[in-house]
C-alpha cells in the first residue's frame, strides 16, 4: 500500500491459484499438496511481477493486470479438470468452518514466522519503501528485503486460503491496511490499527456468516470493507467528516 503496490498483492493472490489448483489436480483436496503448489506458484509470480515491474520501469499496472487475469483463468480451468463447482467454490472462497487440524497448524506456524520476520526486517523495509535509491546507495540491499516481504505475503495467502479462499484472503490483508491510513500518521500506528481492524473484521464476519448463514470469506471481507468505508468517512486523517467539520485555525 505504501509503495503503491496494492495491485501486486492482488496479483499474488490470483497467482497462488494455479498452484493450488495443480496441487488439487494431482492429489485432490489435500492440504500439503495444495499449499505446496500454491507456495511455488506464488513465489514464481512474485519474482515475475518484480521482473515485470523493472522491465516496465515502474509502470507495471497493465502488465500485472494481464498476469492476474491469466492466473485466474488458468486456476479455474485446472480445478474444473477434476472437480465440480463445489470444489471450485471451496478453493476460491474457502470455508472457515471446514478447517482441519493441519490447516490450523499451518496458520499458527505462519503467524509465528511472520511476526518475528517483520520485526526483524522492519528498518530495511521502511527504508526501501521510502527511498529505494538511498537504500541502494548505502548498500542496504533493498531488493532482497522486498522479495522476502513478497514471500511472506505469499506464505500468509497460502495459510489463509483454507479459511477465506484464494480470492478473499487478500481482502483481509489489504482492506485493514488501506483503512489504517485514515487513523494514524506513523507507520507503527498504522500497523496497530490495521491488525485491530483485521481482528474485528474476522470476528464480526464470522458472527455475521453464522447469523445469516452466508459464506465466511465474503462475510469477513465485507466486514473489513465496512471498516474501510467508515474509516474513509470518519477517520481523523484525511477523512471526509474531518474535512467537512471545519474547526478554527490555530495561532501558530
Amino acid at each position: 500500500m505504501l509503495r503503491r503496490m496494492s495491485l501486486t498483492a492482488d496479483v499474488l493472490s490470483h497467482g497462488v491459484l494455479p498452484g493450488v489448483a495443480a496441487g488439487f489436480l494431482l492429489a485432490g483436496l489435500s492440504l500439503p499438496a495444495m499449499a505446496f503448489g500454491g507456495l511455488l506458484a506464488g513465489l514464481v509470480v512474485a519474482l515475475g511481477a518484480g521482473a515485470l515491474s523493472r522491465a516496465t520501469g515502474g509502470r507495471e499496472d497493465a502488465a500485472l493486470a494481464a498476469l492476474y487475469l491469466v492466473a485466474l483463468a488458468a486456476g479455474v480451468l485446472l480445478v474444473s479438470l477434476r472437480g465440480g463447482p463445489a470444489e471450485l467454490t471451496h478453493i476460491l472462497f474457502g470455508s472457515a468452518l471446514g478447517i482441519d487440524d493441519d490447516a490450523l497448524l499451518l496458520m499458527a506456524g505462519t503467524a509465528s514466522v511472520t511476526l518475528p520476520a517483520l520485526a526483524f526486517a522492519w528498518r530495511p523495509l521502511v527504508l526501501e519503501c521510502f527511498d529505494p535509491d538511498f537504500a541502494r546507495a548505502v548498500g542496504a540491499r533493498g531488493g532482497i528485503w522486498h522479495l522476502g516481504f513478497l514471500a511472506l505475503v505469499v506464505l500468509n495467502l497460502i495459510a489463509a486460503f483454507q479459511a477465506l479462499g484464494t480470492l478473499m484472503a487478500v481482502g483481509l490483508m489489504m482492506l485493514p491496511a488501506i483503512a489504517a491510513r485514515h487513523w494514524a500518521r506513523s507507520i507503527g500506528g498504522m500497523v496497530y490499527v490495521a491488525v485491530g481492524l483485521a481482528m474485528l473484521a474476522s470476528i464480526g464476519g464470522l458472527l455475521l456468516s453464522v447469523q445469516l448463514d452466508a459464506p465466511t470469506g465474503p462475510a469477513v471481507v465485507l466486514t473489513a470493507g465496512l471498516g474501510w468505508a467508515s474509516s474513509v468517512l470518519f477517520g481523523p486523517v484525511d477523512g471526509l467528516a474531518a474535512r467537512w467539520w471545519r474547526r478554527p485555525h490555530l495561532a501558530g
Partner: peptide, 10 residues
C-alpha cells in the same frame, strides 16, 4: 522531486 513526500515518517 524524485521522492514520495507523503510517506508516513517523522
Amino acid at each position: 522531486a524524485t521522492l514520495d513526500r507523503h510517506f508516513p515518517l517523522s
